[in-house]
């Protein structure tokens, strides 16, 4: 699905070359849900922009859905297949009516009107914004706007959606709405998801976590194998879920508790089990 080989990227600032990453290699399979973690400046956002040719590699190669991102003749085909959702919901909505905005990509692709109508309605229903189809976007909440943006991508029937910190500007309700939508798209429609985030509770929901630091991939594994490495994560400037931190802390204090819990239920179970053993 997505394959980056020896990917390098740098930009110039004040006459000096700033390397963002060098010889990055990663492969993502069809239907995966991958979270990319890393502190600000770790290169994760720049990596995301390589997936649909907003940025082109300085050297190396990125292929998505079998299309080389540097192949200009297939640019539209690439972008149709790899949708992108950005952080600020206000700055990616083009139209003044929700359904018109969802149709924007299809209009660009020259999709016939009947087909367009059907796909717009379906996309709006999938993100549960169909009732708002005639509304003005600027009056919606952040979570609703972000779901409209996702619908606009969805209508193009992409095989992969890349989301660059889509919840960073949202409140807890909005974050839940967006995360629930993303997970559903992955589960029910089999769409490959690449989620750039620094919220650990979101990363826990992914099938695979890729941790970036200084332009390198330093960890690449399931959340269950990554988060229990509390000290390593902290050294990278990242959090772990409180559930993971609690059992890790108890273990560190010499208690005989099973570590590795990611969610509340797991931590409760591990602690109850430990107490049971003592009795």
């Amino acid at each position: 699905m997505i394959k980056a080989e020896n990917l390098s990227f740098s930009y110039e600032a004040d006459g000096a070359e700033v390397k963002v990453f060098e010889n990055l290699n990663i492969e993502i399979e069809d239907g995966e849900f991958v979270a990319v973690l890393g502190h600000n400046g770790s290169g994760k956002s720049t990596f995301a922009k390589h997936l649909n040719a907003i940025l082109l590699p300085k050297s190396g190669r990125v292929t998505v859905c079998g299309i080389d991102t540097a192949d200009e003749s297939r640019l539209l085909e690439l972008r149709k297949n790899v949708g992108m959702v950005f952080q600020n919901p206000d700055n990616q909505i083009v139209a003044t009516v929700v359904e018109e905005d969802v149709a924007f990509g299809l209009e660009n692709l020259g999709v016939p009107r009947d087909e367009m109508r059907r796909r717009v309605d379906e996309a709006l229903k999938t993100v549960r914004m169909y009732d708002y189809r005639k509304h003005a976007p600027h009056l919606l909440s952040g979570g609703q706007k972000q779901r409209v943006a996702i619908a606009g991508i969805l209508a193009m029937e992409p095989r992969c959606i890349v989301l660059d910190e889509p919840t960073a500007m949202l409140d807890p309700i909005g974050r839940d709405e967006v995360m629930e939508t993303i997970r559903r798209l992955n589960r029910e429609k089999g769409i490959t998801i690449v989620l750039i985030t620094h919220y650990m509770d979101e990363a826990v929901k992914a099938g695979r976590c890729v941790v970036m630091d200084k332009g390198r991939i330093v960890m690449d594994d399931s959340p269950a194998n990554i988060f229990p490495k509390v000290e390593e994560m902290r050294a990278l400037g990242l959090d772990v879920p409180q559930a993971t931190e609690l059992v890790w802390e108890l273990k560190r204090r010499g208690l005989d508790v099973e570590t590795g819990a990611l969610r509340s239920a797991g931590a409760i179970e591990a602690i109850v089990k430990m107490c049971g053993k003592i009795k």
Binding site: D171, P172, I173, D201, P241, Q242, A243, L246, S264, A265, A267, I268, I271, V272
Partner: peptide
């Protein structure tokens, strides 16, 4: 009210 509690207080509640 659409708000959350820290995960830790949910764990404590469960315990």
């Amino acid at each position: 009210m659409g708000l959350n509690t820290p995960q830790i207080s949910r764990i404590v509640d469960g315990l």
